[in-house]
Simulated scan of single mutants.
Amino acid sequence: MTLSTTLTILFSSFLVTVILAPVGIPLLRRLKFGQSIREEGPQSHMKKAGTPTMGGLIFLLAIIISTIVVAMIFDLFTTQTIVLLLVLVGFGVIGFLDDGLKVIFKRNLGLTSLQKLIGQIAIAIAAFLLLRLGSFDTSIGIPYTDVSIDLGILYVGFLIFWLVGFSNAVNLTDGLDGLVSGTASIAFAAFGVIALFNEQADIALFAFAVTGALLGFLIFNANPAKVFMGDTGSLALGGALAMISVLVKQELLLLLIGLVFVIETLSVILQVGSYKLRKKRIFKMSPIHHHFELSGWSEWKVVLVFWSTGCIVALIAVLAEALL
């Protein structure tokens, strides 16, 4: 994929998002799709109650439109493009239903964990079956080595774990203005570059479409946020990010590029485990971004530190991929 194609997809998805947002945000407000805030959360967040949520619909539309149009123009619409759109839309629908129930019943709980899990598993299996129609590699490699393990049909179990795990990891991270928009755009851009190294132009196109759309959304989602992405956006982004790592055959590299999401998830696991086993909390609150807030950090400081961490690990991953 040429530089002009890369810039075309980045700019087009950015532009579509920037055009849709001023229309979508007032519409979400009129429909009273306001965010419910956890009472046990930081008190500084209570002022965010009522901010339009489900804004993920805005950048999801931008990603879908720009990916399909640009892929058609440059003849890059492939089975892998279909799989990526399937995962993005499928997980987005689950998030949309989850957000919808929260809005309708004015509570912070939507779909049950089991309902979400069943939907995520079904989408992961559908993606696997589509990939198996071609010559899909079912091995998992160790980054920067020639070592790999072929899982065969068991790969479907790994795929389910990977997509469900990272969709929920990104969802957990979505707790501060602009946090996920920034960290996810960095992660998708990194995998876009890696896809270019691998000459997988169709995957690179999708990755940069997501990057451009998120940068456009960040204009409206940065502190103070005019709109939240909701589970509609975060679940879709997590599933799509995991799927990209699978398609570029750098599954485990996602643990580095998505380190912020991994740390956020581990903080929740450690907090819950510690409380159940010892009746003591490790952090003031989990996920860990709230711990830093309650420790006196401003919201902007937490977000900037996490963005910086995402940039550093992404650069390390990309440079290592280029040099090794």
Score class of each variant (00 low, 15 high):
L255H: 04
S113W: 04
D202E: 15
T5Q: 15
I19F: 14
N223Y: 14
G258Y: 08
A225Q: 11
I63Q: 03
I219L: 11
Q35I: 11
Q250C: 08
A169I: 03
T112D: 12
G92V: 11
G100K: 08
A127N: 07
E264Y: 03
G50N: 12
G141H: 01
K276F: 09
P42A: 04
G55D: 10
M54E: 09
P143A: 09
A71T: 06
F191W: 00
K48E: 06
F74Q: 04
D174A: 11
T265W: 02
A190H: 11
S167K: 00
E40I: 00
L294E: 08
I25P: 05
L323P: 00
K106D: 13
V302P: 04
L57P: 05
P143W: 09
G212D: 06
L163K: 08
S234D: 13
K284I: 02
I68C: 07
L315K: 04
L60Y: 07
Q80A: 15
K47F: 05
M1Y: 09
K284N: 12
L179T: 04
Y275S: 07
V180E: 01
L237C: 12
L130V: 04
I125M: 11
L133G: 09
L86V: 12
D137L: 03
A187K: 10
D177L: 00
Q80D: 15
L253T: 06
S113R: 02
G34I: 13
I94V: 15
G310D: 00
L133T: 15
I160Q: 11
I73Y: 13
W297T: 04
M243R: 00
A222M: 11
K280L: 12
L3S: 04
S274I: 10
A204W: 07
K301Q: 14
L294W: 12
E299S: 02
S308I: 03
L176D: 10
T67K: 09
I194R: 08
A187F: 05
